[in-house]
Design a protein around this nucleic acid. Sequence first.
RNA 1: GGGCACGUAGAUCAGCGGAAGAUCGCUGCUUUCGCAAAGCAGAGGCCGGGGGUUCAAAUCCCCCCGUGUCCA
Length: 866
Amino acid sequence: MDAREYDLPVFHRQGFSRRTCVRCGAAFWTTGDSDRCQEAPCAPYAFLGHSPFNRPRSVDELREEYLAFFEQRGHQRVRRYPTVARWRNDVFFTQASIYDFQPWVTSGAIPPPANPLTISQPCLRFIDLEEVGRSGRHFTLFEMLAHHAFNRPDHEVYFKDRTVELCHELLTQTFGVDGRLVTYKEEEWEGGGNLGPSLSVGVLGLEVATLVFMEYVRAGDLVEPMPLTVVDTGYGLERLTWLSHGSHNAYEAVFGRAYEELRQTFAPTETAVLIDHARALNFLLTDGVVPSNSKDGYFARLLLRRMLRVLAKAPEAPTLAEVLDRVGRDAARHFPELGAHRDDLHRVVAAEVERYDEAIGRAREQVRRAEERSERVGTRITGEDLVAWYDSWGLPPDLAVQSLKNPPEVPKDFYALLAARHEKEARETDYTEGTRGLPKVPESLPATEVLYYGDPYTLQFEAHVLHVEGPYVVLDRTFFYPTGGGQITDTGRLGDANVVEVAKSGRWVLHRLEAPSTLHVGDRVRGHIDGGRRTQLMQHHTATHLINGALRELLGPHVWQAGAYKGTESARIDVTHFRALSTAELKAVERRVNQVVREDRPVKSYFESRGEAERRFGFGLYQGGAVPGRELRVVEVEGFDVEACGGTHCTHTSEVGLVTLLGSERIQDGIVRLSYAAGERALDVVEGHRSLLNDAARSLGVAPEQLLHAIGRLQRDVEEARATAKSQALEDLATTADRLAADASASIEAHGVRVTAARLALDKSGLMEVSRRLTRGQGRVAVLASESEGRGLLFVGSTAPSVPALAVLEAARARFSGKGGGNPSSATAVGEPGSPLDVALAAAREAALQLATGGAAPSGATKALP
RNA sequence: GGGCACGUAGAUCAGCGGAAGAUCGCUGCUUUCGCAAAGCAGAGGCCGGGGGUUCAAAUCCCCCCGUGUCCA
């Protein structure tokens, strides 16, 4: 980046000079005489025990001071955004304050909530999870203090010069830091296709802020200026607080009393993990993450389990919930929402603690068995096993070592080995997702005016054709609802042609006709929407909002919509919840929804600016996920549920009609699905159930009330019949065996070995059963043959040590070109079709006798005795 | 979204190419005034589902379904 980017007037006004760090070689600006930039690792922490601040501050004091400082200098204070970035779908968590304004504000699509603004944004970063407690300065959740300015060509707020000026004033005037201790290191910055200069602010070895200037956009190899430039600053609240204390580590300074309390029981590193994770979890759970085994839920589980592992080390330890509450109480002083739904948070945590105990119990059992097995086989448990156990059972190596009698060393590179097991994951996934095959609409075409938002009842309208391509027609205005937001397409007619699908593409609505359209641009055409279908979709869509509202009301605010589908026959919603729903819960949801239907509440759908809607209703609006646009369409079921939604909705809840639940299932860890039908379809379902019941009862010849009883009887009958059939079959086999045993001509006895040979008409399992009975007791050999599906089957069973079944079989196998094998106690062979089974049987019998009398088995090549 | 592990009797699990097992629980008998306990006997299995390989599959391979776990 060009050095001129950093040659700011403010540096000259205030007597800065540009220097080069003797350690890292980077250029930096300072009023002091340091020969290195004041950041790790170039400069050591020089503030420990010697804070450069005029006095120590608590986090609350420092945050307030910061926000007030910028407020007094023309900035407007903005409330924090959720730590879970629901308004965007490219990341799970808010990792910096600028995330709040990406992509809609930074791209210029919508105005910022204020300009310039200042904010303290809790951010989550899991990249340094392992460093928490070790380094003394890492946090999974930290607050990014920031001031942002968004400059448009027609409205310049301020840029680099003023930003540096403000930073230096804050540090020196407000915090009382000697300006000569501060360095501004030049750094290039690039991300998300944007780039620009940035300054990293260091004080006595600690980086306390980064001043980023979004100025250019990368287009291939070219770097072009952005139409909208952004001041993106980030000051570490925790680091500034730490600096103001000059304490041994950041955690003491940030958490104060709560840290000291936990230190009574835990080592410094453990305390840091507990307190950091507890704060992060308070935000995560309050912002609606349900712990699970994938996606954002996994990170909540990870933090939770890491805390549980630490807590388990001390018998006197407080419970997880107690630690969460203690830390949450402090954080709630500035973020009162953290205390708002303690009960719900406790329920989520309790379920998770239970799961953890189960998982560890299971894993311990696995370890016990693995050790038994290895003792039996004579192998040793290795470090590799520890890695595998953690990966497969979630058993941390220290716990595994605890429960082993002869534990191996935990490999030094445990996490590297773990990572190696996951290397294959990087395999390319095929993203050639089915292109929708919609035609390109000329950019010059004016946007389709969508009328269904304002009026979901109009089913006939006139419009002009703007564009035609094959079966696709674009109109200047339309009442047809295109597939979207989980609601499927409207159908109907356009002129004489059937509309089979409607899709939204950019600013246009495309109507797909059954056949290539005969319409021409400029034609006036009459649209006709299938009203029955539309009504049903509206009922299902509004019902979905009612169900979501009822679930949040009954289960708690951790419930978030995770997907939905509204069809003509039924609809379903997926929501986050920590366990499957009970029958009682389902009943309660159904009752509540139908109650709201009967209350006939107004359902208002209207557009509102994004900022205003977020301010009035919070981020719970984004139940359906991130939605684009400057304005949000708000669908508000009065006093019950508010969501940003583009669907067609009833205007009063009574229009939804009956809502009946069809079922619920747990589709993933942390996600349950409810299926239901509303309106006419709900009646269809009820009717269907009734006739099913009646038909079932009639087919059993009983009254519907008697159905269960009749089925029970039927089941018993079937079981009995099956049992008798089975015992009959066994009895038949027993009879066969007995007859053979009694038949003197079937058996020969030699040297205490009785050989019984016979040809039977049984399948393989029949032969096996007869053999089993003939060879009860020692010194018995059974040689049985049968024809099964045209192929000869030879079975040898033996309890005579001198007559191994396999040896007998080997002797006879070649006789009927059979394939087979076995062991000393049993052997089977199957012959080619048409092979001489009797010859094989005789040969096997002879072989058995010879073995019994001490002779070697005749080889298959010798002739069978007559 | 991906990797790994696991689905066998009512429960917990063993077996991991050659005739489906153990422990607990259950039923009956013996013993006891009765209970507990013990002994003996017995019932209970589409070895998660579907394909494939093999003379032979609970066992090996592939695809589903379910559970758990780790990672992004």
